[in-house]
Write a protein that binds this DNA or RNA. Structure first.
Lengths: 206, 206
DNA sequence: ACTACACTACACCGTGCAGTGTAGTGCTGG
DNA sequence: CCAGCACTACACTGCACGGTGTAGTGTAGT
């Protein structure tokens, strides 16, 4: 008698189909408003199969957060490496970086959607899952420390500076545009540009 | 035959009892997770009475948002007047202002809860209701304009500066502390102080 | 041909919840 | 005393949803 009812380990693509269907629906509509039937329909899979792969709705949620979180972190790390290594012009680099995060991130601001999701379902998640939401800031903080060492920024607390950067760029863009499809370059860019400028006025070396 | 089933106009305190019960529950747990039965119980009122006063759950939500929004705006306006008129020390004044907003606001960060609520229930609200969430920034922007005229701040776009200020203080505090009961002065204050300092480094006159 | 397995279709249970209908109670003014 | 009103208690409908059980189908390996 196995303890956990033996979930199917799924060699097939069904698992990923379910996962990405769940991801789209959870991120778009939230956990409560997404029915398992809807996920199954979107994945073109029987509801029973969903329950065979993942034991229940909460486990499915955790799986979604895990995968989205991982891919999100990877994207951010890569984008940091691409745009924030040895920049010739710091302002341009920071703007380019932020824009790529804002758009390159699959469709709309998936990062913030994930964040909202994690924050809004504390009851459905084990402690510590919200750590995922902090990783990007920490990665940024690392890079800021390097900039400070190179004399490009004047920073005492790198983590705080990262928080300020995120707040000034994504934070403002998000609250003002309300997670409208960020693919619209034109509306997002001004907020990013101004956020970066303000950041540099506060943290730049004269 | 009246068109709208004739809601009760309620001279009594029942109406406000229902409203504040609904406010607490909606803001704490969200719309979906709050049952009308729970609201009725909390208001110590029969469920039927809730439906007699407000026609359905959505109308109740709109009423809550209206009243909370109004009182929130009033509080902010008053706090601005109290703390941001003719300040002797700008940094101290901004910190005091922010702390009062963060705590004085009834219990936890009700402003952000309202914001979350408005943003997360777009389907349950008529267009234009999210305007409420912008009023505080606009009030702040007015005052910033005055400061700029008085030579206390170096600002081009006052509304943008207000957005930046809110993001640097409440935004950061909120994402980092996750709407924990803000009454805990000690945890909030550092974020507010640092946010204000960063803001002044970017927008202050040297 | 037989087994094993992944999967579907479908019926089904329990529950929580929005919303309604109604009988009854107590209070207030004429 | 009566009428009207605000309100409660409660039963009830309809529905959506999470989760389960199961019979049956297609397919691959032996």
């Amino acid at each position: 008698m196995s303890s956990t009812k033996a979930l199917r380990e799924g060699s097939t693509g069904k698992r990923t189909a379910i996962l990405s269907a769940a991801r789209e629906l959870f991120l778009a509509n939230g956990f409560d408003r997404t029915s398992v039937d809807a996920v199954a329909a979107r994945a073109e899979v029987s509801k029973r199969t969903v329950y065979d792969y993942f034991g229940d709705k909460h486990t499915l949620l955790r799986a979604v957060i895990d995968t989205v979180g991982q891919s999100l972190i990877a994207t951010i790390r890569r984008t940091i490496d691409d745009n924030l290594t040895d920049p010739s012009d710091l302002e341009d680099a920071l703007v380019a970086f932020s824009m790529r995060i804002a758009t390159d991130m699959f469709d709309s601001a998936e990062y913030t959607a994930l964040r909202r999701l994690v924050r809004s379902e504390p009851d459905n998640l084990p402690r510590g899952y919200n750590t995922i939401a902090d990783v990007p800031e920490e990665a940024l903080a690392e890079r800021f420390t390097a900039f400070a060492a190179a004399g490009l920024l004047d920073i005492q607390d790198a983590r705080l500076a990262a928080d300020h950067f995120v707040a000034l760029t994504f934070g403002v863009a998000l609250t003002r545009l309300g997670s409208a499809n960020a693919t619209e370059d034109t509306r997002v860019r001004p907020f990013i540009v101004e956020g970066v400028r303000t950041f540099l006025r506060a943290y730049g070396t004269r």
